Simulated scan of single mutants.
Amino acid sequence: MTRYATGRLLLTPVDPEAPTRAGRLRRLDLGERDDTSFESFDAFADKVAEVTETPYSMVNFIDENRQFFAGLHTPSGTQGGSDLSTAAAGSGRSGRHMARDHGYCPHVLLRRKALVLDDVCDYPRFAGNPVVDEIGIRSYLGAPLIDRTGIALGTVCAVDTVPRPWGRAGLATIKSLAQELVGHLNRRERR
């Protein structure tokens, strides 16, 4: 098993679908961009934050090497990611990147179903994730974005720095938001 420099075990699962997903993301033109073509994803992340009443929310596409926040809502209302820890976000453009072994979205992607963590510290597998110490994440609510081809392209998620009792209502909400965004992706592809 791989260990972090801190001695913690690396618990992010292996992703055998990553090359296929990365190819699909390129075909859909959903990879990294330097222009403002992701304004609609930022607006969607804003909606997720409003609906879930959380300080952070993301529309996250994941390739072989890292996560890319195509949509990002932060407490300051900026989409630059400056509110995210530089250490966790990596050296990518404007803080919109995160290593694959940071956070919970890679788990959602491979599970292919929603993940609800009221308090990440209650789960040994998730409590040791770098985002707990580096960003202060304590609760997570995320669902996969499974496109019309059956490929899980990424996730939509909401996170908070305090424990949250998401309950069934939170689960239903994030699943509904994911379905809404998949509809947006399908319409985008048809154009």
Rank of each mutant, 00 (worst) to 15 (best):
A127F: 01
V162L: 07
L141F: 08
I174H: 11
P19K: 06
R3T: 15
A70G: 12
T2D: 15
R164V: 15
G80E: 12
D29V: 02
A152P: 06
I62T: 11
R33N: 13
R125Q: 13
T20V: 12
G80K: 06
A152D: 05
L117N: 02
R111L: 15
N65S: 14
G23V: 00
T78Y: 08
G150S: 01
R21Y: 07
I137E: 07
P16I: 07
V116Q: 05
D42V: 03
G77Q: 04
V14Q: 12
R96H: 08
G154T: 04
H102L: 00
H107D: 13
V48Q: 02
L30M: 13
L9K: 02
G90D: 09
E32D: 13
R24I: 10
E180A: 14
G7R: 12
L11N: 15
R125D: 13
R164L: 07
D122L: 11
V51W: 00
G77I: 02
Y4W: 14
L109N: 02
D35T: 11
L30Y: 04
Q179Y: 07
Y104F: 15
R66T: 03
S37L: 05
A158P: 08
D118P: 10
G71A: 12
G167A: 09
A70V: 02
P13E: 08
P16E: 14
V132C: 01
P13F: 00
H107R: 14
T52G: 09
N186C: 07
T2L: 11
K113E: 15
R100P: 02
G90W: 02
G92S: 01
A89H: 03
T12M: 15
S139K: 06
L185G: 01
L177T: 11
L153E: 12
R191Q: 14
A178I: 08
G95T: 06
V14Y: 08
Q179F: 05
R138E: 00
T86G: 12
E32A: 11
N186W: 06
D46W: 04
F38Q: 04
T161F: 06
R96W: 07
R138N: 00
Y104H: 11
I135C: 14
P19Y: 00
S76V: 00
G142I: 11
R111S: 14
G90C: 05
L153Q: 12
G103R: 08
N65A: 15
R188W: 14
K113N: 13
R168L: 09
P165S: 13
F69E: 01
L25P: 07
V48C: 10
R24C: 01
S91A: 13
F38P: 00
F41H: 11
L10H: 12
G71S: 09
H73P: 03
T86R: 13
L10K: 12
L171A: 11
P55R: 06
A18V: 09
G80M: 07
K47N: 04
G71C: 11
Y140D: 01
